[in-house]
């Protein structure tokens, strides 16, 4: 992090309303409607889960810091608000996002090593030519208008953990929920602290023991069953958050704190719903389906 969120380029240039984001994507699709029809791709969030899984594999292999991977995911999102995905080789783009994010987060990787690893993971789509990575890096920077600093919700979580007296279970659940927020559009729609507060709220409402699979993205598996009860809890608590109706003691205290903090409650409710609905669509995730549809697109369009 550098500078602060309120005066950041992220707030000024990379925050959208839902409607604006939908417009942008619709106009991207409209550019080449034929390809869009010809090469159907999985639902955005499912695709995000897939890309995230791929990035984590690459990151694990090279011991890349989590913050760099988080930044890479934001770059990927930003890039695809500017460039139609069907005009790109997503594997190259995501590898390059990781490469660039590592530079920005001050943990640079050798381009040759990264290209080599990427090639090992996706031999059909990555030739390992470093000039392609370098060229792609330039495009990503250029499409992002050189706004490179990304603020993440993790810092807010770290700061609030002692202040709100979160248990280590709650804190780590919240951390995982933040990880999951990168699978949604939330980072393009809301301030990092709003996402952090949502994650804390969910972590406290859904005790990890109840919510089981909550925040499961790190493992690349969908949240476990038993989500029904969890969703019901969330629904009740969200209502309490919105209306100020007292819930049970701990949650009550938290909602009070939120009310007093002046955070945008509506935004919080919206974030909560986005996260919950992510866990709902997660059941439909199939790595194989994503891989096949992307593969077909890349091959037939000659993108690699």
């Amino acid at each position: 992090m550098a500078a602060n969120w309120w005066v950041s380029t992220q707030r000024k240039h990379w925050l959208f309303t839902k409607e604006k984001l939908a417009d942008i994507r619709a106009s991207l699709d409209a550019v080449d409607a034929k390809s869009v029809a010809q090469f159907p791709l999985p639902e955005k969030r499912l695709l995000n889960i897939y890309f995230n899984t791929q990035m984590i594999r690459l990151g694990k292999r090279m011991s890349i810091r989590q913050q760099a991977l988080a930044t890479a995911q934001i770059y990927l999102k930003r890039f695809y608000t500017k460039v139609p995905i069907r005009d790109t080789n997503p594997y190259l783009v995501l590898a390059t996002c990781v490469y660039l994010a590592c530079k920005i987060e001050e943990c640079p990787q050798h381009i040759r090593v990264l290209a080599g690893e990427a090639r090992t993971f996706w031999p059909e789509y990555i030739t390992g030519e470093i000039s392609k990575l370098a060229e792609c890096e330039f495009h990503i920077i250029s499409e992002m208008n050189s706004y490179l600093i990304v603020h993440h919700p993790y810092r807010t979580l770290q700061e609030l953990t002692p202040m709100l007296g979160l248990t280590s279970d709650e804190s780590s659940t919240a951390w995982c929920v933040i990880n999951d927020s990168y699978l949604t559009d939330l980072p393009l729609l809301h301030a990092p602290h709003v996402i952090a507060l949502t994650a804390i709220f969910l972590a406290v409402v859904l005790k990890p023991t109840q919510g089981q699979g909550l925040g499961a993205s790190a493992a690349g598996t969908p949240p476990g069953q038993g989500g029904g009860q969890a969703s019901a809890n969330v629904a009740a608590a969200t209502q309490a958050l919105g209306s100020g109706v007292p819930g049970n003691g701990r949650i009550n205290k938290l909602t009070e704190w939120y009310a007093e903090s002046g955070v945008d409650i509506e935004a919080l409710v919206d974030c909560t719903q986005e996260i919950i609905s992510l866990y709902e669509v997660w059941d439909g995730f199939s790595e194989k389906a994503c891989k096949e549809q992307l593969g077909r697109m890349i091959k037939q369009r000659g993108l690699c």
């Binding site: 550098a2 500078a3 380029t9 990575l133 890096e137």
Partner: peptide, 23 residues
């Protein structure tokens, strides 16, 4: 300048762009 065989944008350039864009 970007050399095609290089590591992409140098760390100097990256840092300069990164910070001057925000400060």
């Amino acid at each position: 300048k970007l050399a095609p065989t290089s590591e992409g944008l140098s760390m100097d350039a990256i840092r300069e762009v990164k910070y001057l864009r925000e400060l």
